[in-house]
Design a protein around this nucleic acid. Structure first.
Lengths: 249, 249
DNA sequence: AACGGCTTGTGAAGACTTGCACAAAGTCGG
DNA sequence: CCGACTTTGTGCAAGTCTTCACAAGCCGTT
């Protein structure tokens, strides 16, 4: 069992396996367009931001964009942006900037979102229902192909035109639709079991909204969205700002 | 305007201000219980996880817990956990472990969640509605004190017993309830304007669900939850695993 | 064709984070 | 009271990430 890949940092997720010097990803050395480079985890997380920003710029009719402009729009340091993009290859033109359309294509390619991807969602409670109806997934190339819930009272219910299915057909459904990404929006108690079922169904990437730490075998990536945790982190900063005005002892 | 503090890393968020060597937080040197230390951003993010895990352990009746057990439950390296906890002070007993109850208290104190905190939520669309009804906030000490929406058709609607209010009363409401944490769950277009209004109302910490990069003045912390972005990161890893089986050129 | 201006791509330095390994310190049985 | 055992707290080394600064390269003008 490896530890999960948290959203806060991009650890190797293999604390007992290889040494700390091992790069985060198997090196795809020599594969032309990737320039034989390994893309750092921190860069991958930012590529998603760049993709969104540059897509908007493209929609506004911009043909090229400089690293300074793009960095400002993405809220990062220009040098960092250039280095991030350099991992994809040399797609900028010195003296001019980056071709907006080309950049969208290349980032999409590296992120693997050139085609729509199917995902499944398990747990259609309060949060799951919102995720099922969230328009932001479709606009970024993700289609929720199936919904599942362990509660038989919810099975059959239609959400956003998609019927909630019983957990018993999860494996078959995932394999048919070739789904490799699953989202868990169940209560904490059910999270690990659902996770195991997803993996048994062939899912290798999991986005976890349940407030638990999932155990997964090697080769499975987990990212966690911890809503209350985010507030706690903000709370820390808030407390820091008010510098000891409360609970001095 | 500083860049925002993203969920992926804990940057200083002040690229033009002080030098890069400046620690992330003003040092509260000499304040007894804090041992004069600065808590690294990466540690803060993990404290939220530890708090949840150790709370569960406490509920199961455990009196003490060793760093190995706690680290396994939190999915991190034991040495990292011990170093993280050492920033709070020496609250473990060598040869025994950590007192569960004391640990809950100390982590809560550092995170500033010893008392309930009020937060406001702007935008009660699909996602906002789910957040308003999400039980995970209350269980971690956060109360959604007020809901707001720019759409007058939604104003007055009751969600989870709380009425949606008009944006015009946001400032007054925030000041009355002493709210310093705001959540933005609006469409992208409205995000920046809502952000500005929240800051004008005295909010200094923002949790942003809108898919945009917010510009905020110094002293305001922003964390972003990018749902589609998370899927894109997973998509990258998925593509990496299937190693060039698609689009070789 | 050469020049000046602008912007990318990257080497190098520095800051931050991680994880090992072990000294320090406490408990428990005798 | 002592010695063996357990576990914390941390110095240190290694790795990752960020940022600066500048050489390399492209475009338009002369």
């Amino acid at each position: 069992m490896t530890e999960q890949r948290g959203p806060d940092r991009g650890s190797t997720g293999d604390p007992e396996g290889g040494g700390p010097g091992e790069p985060a990803h198997g090196r795809a050395a020599g594969r032309g367009a990737d320039r034989g480079r390994v893309v750092p985890e921190a860069t991958v997380a930012r590529l998603a931001v760049y993709l969104r920003v540059v897509t908007v710029l493209g929609g506004q009719g911009a043909a090229t964009v400089s690293s300074d402009e793009l960095a400002a729009a993405a809220g990062v340091n220009p040098a960092k942006l250039r280095k991030d993009l350099s991992f994809l290859g040399s797609y900028g033109t010195r003296g001019v900037g980056y071709d907006v359309h080309l950049l969208v294509e290349e980032i999409s390619r590296v992120l693997g979102v050139t085609r729509h991807r199917n995902v499944v969602l398990v747990g259609v409670g309060n949060l799951g229902r919102a995720l099922a109806g969230y328009g932001g997934f479709a606009s970024q190339g993700f289609t929720i192909a199936a919904l599942f819930d362990a509660d038989s009272a919810r099975v059959g219910e239609k959400i956003n035109g998609l019927a909630v299915q019983d957990m018993s057909v999860l494996a078959a459904s995932c394999r048919t639709a070739k789904v490799t990404i699953g989202m868990i929006a169940t209560p904490a108690e059910a999270g690990q079991q659902v996770c195991d079922q997803l993996i048994a169904a062939g899912v290798t990437c999991i986005l976890n909204f349940a407030p638990i730490v999932l155990s997964v075998p090697d080769g499975v990536d987990v990212r966690k969205v911890d809503l209350a945790g985010e507030l706690q982190i903000l709370s820390f900063h808030e407390r820091r700002k008010s510098a000891g005005l409360e609970e001095v002892g």
